[in-house]
Computed example of a mutant assay.
Amino acid sequence: MTTPADGLAALRDGAAYRPARADRPVTRRLDSGVTIEVPGPRILAETFALPTLKLARDVYRSGSALLFRDHGAEGEPTPVNMVHLAQQLREDLASLPDRPDAGRPYRDLKLFMTEGDTGSVSAYLADALKATRQAAPVWRPPAAPRPPAMTPAQRKAKQRERENAAEEAAARWWISEVLIPTLEDPAPIGPQPGEKIAAADLYQFAAHSFQCWREDEETDHETPGPRIFYRVADELLAPSWRGTGGVKTYRLPNP
C-alpha cells in the first residue's frame, strides 16, 4: 500500500511551471551554503501532511480551524492546536528515513527541517498547514433524521386538522369580534340583545357576512362549517337548547 512518505519520495525537482504560488517549489540557501528545493506548501499538504493526518483520525475544517475526530467516533470534531501540529509535522519530516529511490524534494525537506533557520522553516510549515486546512473537507453537522413519510390517510387527516383549526378561528373571530360588539349597539335590523334565534338562522347570518366580506376582499377567513360554528357558539354565547318543534336555538347575550 502506498504511504504518504512514498508520495513524497516520488516528487522530483525541476517540475513544470505551476501558476499558483502555493504549488511552486520553494528554494532556500542554508547557512552551510547548500541550495535546497522543497515542494510548494500545497504540494506538501496534499502529498504528505493531510494524508498523514488522515491515517490516525478524521480531518475536517471549519472557518480558520482544522478539526480532528477519532476514526469511528460520532461526536463533533474538535479544533487542533496549529502550533503543536506544526512542530509535529517538522519532526515527522526530519525523521523521514533515507531512501535511495527518493527524489531531491524528499531529501531537501529532511535537510531543511534539520538545518533551516527557525523563521524560514516556521513560515513554510505555516503555509503548508494553511493549505492542509483548505484541502480538508468542510465539517457539516449531520442533518436531523427525517420523519417517516406520512400515509395518504395521515396526510388527509393532517389537512383536515388544519382546515378545522382555520374554521374554528374564523368562528371565534366572528362571534367575539363581530356579533357580540354588534349586540352592544344593535342596528334596527339584525340580531338583537337577548333575542332567541334558531341556530340555523344565526349560522346563515354569519355565512352571509363571510361571503360579502370575501367578495369585497375584506377578510381572508373561510366560512366555518355548521358543526364547528355551533361548537364555538355553545362556548362563547351559551349552550343551545331544543326549542319549539325541536329547533336548535340560542339566546343572544344582552350586554
Rank of each mutant, 00 (worst) to 15 (best):
I228M: 11
R146V: 15
A144Q: 12
R146L: 15
K130Y: 14
H71Y: 03
G75I: 02
A170S: 13
T151Q: 09
P19T: 07
E218Y: 06
N81A: 12
K110I: 04
S120P: 10
R24D: 04
Q154S: 06
D117T: 09
T249S: 12
R90I: 02
A20I: 04
F48R: 04
S122G: 09
V178S: 04
Y230F: 12
P147I: 01
R57I: 00
L67W: 10
L111W: 01
P25T: 05
L252F: 10
R133F: 01
D6H: 11
A65L: 15
R61Y: 06
D58C: 06
D13T: 06
A157D: 13
M113Q: 05
A20M: 12
A171M: 08
F205K: 07
A102Q: 11
Y60M: 09
A206N: 07
R99L: 14
D216H: 09
D185M: 03
G245H: 11
S64H: 09
K130G: 15
L44K: 03
R28N: 05
K156V: 00
A10P: 02
S62I: 00
D23W: 08
R69M: 05
K196Q: 12
A233R: 08
L202N: 08
V138P: 00
Y203N: 12
L89Y: 02
R61T: 14
E168N: 02
M150K: 13
D117Y: 02
M1I: 04
W213T: 01
M150Y: 00
F229C: 14
A157I: 00
R21G: 04
K158A: 15
K54P: 00
H208V: 05
I189L: 08
D108W: 03
G243M: 01
E91R: 10
V34Y: 02
G116A: 07
V26C: 14
L53V: 00
N164I: 09
A165R: 15
